[in-house]
Design a protein around this nucleic acid. Structure first.
Length: 596
RNA sequence: CGGGGUGUAGCUUAGCCUGGUAGAGCGCCUGGUUUGGGACCAGGAGGUCGAGAGUUCGAAUCUCUCCGCCCCGACCA
């Protein structure tokens, strides 16, 4: 047991000026963290305890075998955080990742290779673990393996935000699975999914698995674990009944029927003058009066240096994340200066009708969203400033390289599973699992020999849990006007013994006895022995969110009772002194069992 | 990096528009009275007003530059 006076929990009455959201304010007010700079935080004793508890639960769930998925538990390692930059240059995502990586120049900077950093601080460890496994594992007999670590990660976020929610330096669990076969990799993936679900359940928070984009990580499929919260950075698109849930970046709908037949063209293409019209809205207005869902929106992007065209309906938005399916490493919207020489017009008059593109060979392709097939006799730019074309039909007229899903779904569209309308809510991404495939094993040539003496690339998966972010997400999900309400499993201390008369030997003796009883039953106990007035102690206990409070004071002792109060409940139970130890022990055991 | 905001004591802030000795609350220190939901009284310490330059007899206040922080966008655990 710990005495309050012997640790350090600097609570604040007022919220810090730079905190916006509840969990950030409470983190600071409850004395769990202090800020060093943007996205950089010191963990104070109570905050550190929570982080250690989350880490420990994470560790236990990672190590746990998943026989239902034919997988042993993951194996803990510790990898360096300073990485030779060459390793990343060799890897598959240097171009995409370098912007967020902290660069470490060596002591003699200036001589030799001055442009490139000598070292970088690790944002994750694929580039470290893959060469390691390549060197150490060469036989199918040693596969599968899954290595994980819980450690600090560094990302020079463009915009750190909301305290620990998006920090420059943060604690993450990262795991990397290596399998001999694709089937095996799927088993590893599903085993990790099960471990994640068990982990979040033990923490006592709601985190739902949703289909996600693979982003810069690459790979074939992935799930994010989202804590529903208004302040979340991501939109989860879902339907309660069908169970469909996906990140907006990835979400699809059944808007376009699979058996859709192209509408029959009703006439030849006609060019018409549209002076000054450069927006969808302007073309919708009189005198043109072309509804947005009858317009082709033609956008130009640059992928790895080469321009390409994406077409969606005028009423739709391109979901840029979905362009990742096209295979580019890096892509961005093109500038007007890049567009004109290729298409022949400025943005606002662009189109992809056959024969109108000025320099089609300069394009990496014309990619069309499926939904444009809903347009018959539509309108698009003529690739001539101030002119558009009408009676444009998809199959007959457009120079399309490939169809795909490139549009952003909207709430209310039919779910692909049930046809019921999709809904949206915000979420905090606390975990992410990827089936990577052979992207990294090919790049680093991580191969093994099978039982037929054949050599194959290992099939990888990678997995992350934002430990420090999860800590804050728990607070965001579980608080009230008085402060934090910690779930039992992660509370810095599960029981606080509030001694109202610490200078009185009787009260102190009782407090110690109750604390010992709670501790013996399995709780972490903090005794508030400070020479503060009762009000201060109660307020601090509520703010810190200890699940169970035991109050000892002269007034109660005269009556022969102590008080027991759950943070999440309103009523205070009076417990006769004689029964107190037994009642407390039972309460602690029940709480521990319920959350175990 | 673009847009918006902000910077005054450990914390929360007033003062800035309209230039003239820098104020409050909380916290802290001393003494006293209190003692079951952030006590009260008396006294006290604590401020290069983010930094630099400029305008002015005089700048927290006006001007310029830079920096930090916060919010919105792209990115992420």
């Amino acid at each position: 047991m710990k005495k309050w006076s012997q640790t350090f929990i600097p609570t604040l009455k007022e919220s810090p000026a730079d905190a916006e959201i509840a969990s950030h304010k409470l983190l600071v007010r409850a004395g769990l963290v202090r800020k060093l700079g943007g996205g950089l935080y010191t963990f104070m004793p109570a905050g550190l305890r929570v982080m250690q508890k989350i880490s420990q639960i994470c560790r236990e769930e990672m190590e746990r075998a998943r026989p239902d998925h034919e997988r042993a538990g993951a194996i803990e390692v510790w990898m360096p955080h300073v990485h030779p930059a060459e390793l990343w240059e060799e890897g598959p995502r240097w171009a995409a990742a370098r912007e967020i990586m902290f660069r470490v120049d060596h002591a003699g900077a200036g001589k030799g290779r001055s442009k490139e950093p000598e070292f970088v601080l690790g944002p994750t460890h694929e580039e470290v673990v893959t060469p390691l496994v390549k060197a150490e594992i060469t036989s199918y007999r040693d596969l599968p393996k899954n290595f994980y670590q819980i450690s600090t990660k560094f990302r020079n976020e463009i915009r750190p935000r909301y305290g620990l929610m998006r920090a420059r330096e943060f604690v993450m669990m990262d795991a990397y699975s290596f399998d001999a076969t694709d089937d095996g990799a799927i088993k590893s993936y599903l085993a990790m999914k099960a471990s994640y679900e068990a982990f979040f359940k033990r923490l006592g928070i709601v985190a739902i698995a949703v289909e996600a984009d693979t982003g810069v990580m690459g790979g074939s499929f992935s799930h994010e674990f989202m804590v529903p919260a208004e302040i979340g950075d991501d939109d989860v698109i879902y339907n309660e009944e069908s169970g469909y849930a996906a990140n907006r970046e990835k979400a699809t709908s059944a808007l376009v029927p699979a058996d859709l037949a192209d509408a029959a063209p009703v006439g030849a293409i006609e060019e018409f003058a549209t002076p000054g019209v450069v927006t969808i809205a302007a073309l919708e207005a009189a005198p043109y009066s072309v509804p947005a869902d009858k317009q082709f929106k033609t956008l130009v992007f640059v992928g790895d240096g080469t321009p390409f065209v994406v077409i969606v309906r005028g009423c739709d938005d391109v979901e840029e994340a979905k362009l990742g399916a096209l295979g580019f490493q890096l892509w961005r919207p093109a500038t007007p200066e890049e567009i004109e020489p290729v298409l022949g017009a400025k943005p606002g008059s662009l189109g992809a009708v056959k024969g109108t593109i000025k320099n089609p060979s300069a394009l990496a392709g014309v990619f069309a969203d499926h939904a444009i097939r809903l347009i018959g006799n539509g309108t698009t730019g003529a690739n001539k400033d101030g002119f558009h074309l009408r009676n444009v039909n998809v199959a007959r007229d457009l120079a399309i390289t490939k169809f795909g899903d490139f549009r952003r779904v909207r709430v209310g569209e039919p779910d692909v599973k049930s046809g019921k309308p999709l809904q949206a809510r915000r979420g905090i991404e606390v975990g992410h699992i990827f089936k990577l495939g052979t992207k990294y094993s090919e790049k680093f040539n991580a191969v093994y020999t099978d039982d037929k003496k054949q050599s194959h690339h290992m099939v990888m998966g990678c997995y992350g849990i934002g430990v420090s972010r999860t800590l804050q997400a728990i607070i965001e999900q579980s608080n009230d006007a008085d402060g934090i309400i910690w779930p039992w499993a992660v509370a810095p201390w599960q029981v606080v013994v509030t001694n109202l008369d610490p200078q009185d030997a009787t009260a102190s003796g009782v407090a110690e006895k109750l604390a010992a009883a709670a501790e013996a039953a399995g709780a972490d106990v903090l005794i508030d022995d400070r020479a503060e007035r009762p009000g201060v102690k109660f307020k601090d206990a509520d703010l810190l969110g200890f699940p169970l409070r035991l109050t000892v004071g002269g007034k109660g002792l005269k009556e022969g009772i102590i008080e027991m109060k759950w943070r999440a409940e309103k009523d205070v139970k009076k417990v006769p002194l004689a029964d107190a130890e037994a009642v407390i022990a039972a309460a602690v055991r029940a709480a521990g069992a319920a959350k175990a």
